[in-house]
């Protein structure tokens, strides 16, 4: 369900995959997007990629030569987000916006009262 909160790892994976990337590229992008805070461990990333592929939120992208990855070469394959994944991601951004706005609303007000 899109209404449930995504884990930070899943959120950054989906965000990274708005362009096709290999596993290592996802790790680098998540780290740079978060200013070095989010460091996806390789095992965790591997599990999340399999899980997201099974759900159809991401898919294998053709490699640089435009060929579909096959057999042993499959390890070099890149991933990209699917329309379903993008829909989930948009829902999550909206939800995070709500969390953020409410935080400012309450804490901002309390801080102003002090």
């Amino acid at each position: 369900m899109a209404e449930s909160a995504l884990t930070e790892a899943v959120y950054y994976i989906l965000l990274s995959l708005t362009e096709p990337l290999h596993g290592y590229g996802i790790m680098q992008k998540a780290e740079s997007l978060s200013g070095g805070r989010v460091r996806l461990a390789a095992g965790t990333l591997y599990g999340a990629l399999s899980n997201l592929t099974e759900r159809g939120w991401i898919e294998s992208a053709p490699d640089e030569n435009g060929a579909e990855p096959r057999g042993r070469e499959a390890r070099r394959h890149a991933y990209r987000i699917t329309p379903r994944g993008l829909e989930i991601l948009r829902g999550e951004v909206k939800r995070l916006g709500e969390l953020y706005e409410n935080g400012l609303l309450i804490l901002g007000k309390a801080d102003a009262d002090m």
């Binding site: 290999h22 596993g23 290592y24 390789a42 095992g43 990333l45 591997y46 042993r72 390890r75 070099r76």
Partner: peptide, 8 residues
């Protein structure tokens, strides 16, 4: 899995 790790 090991190939994936190698890649990283």
């Amino acid at each position: 899995y090991l190939r994936f790790l190698e890649e990283t």
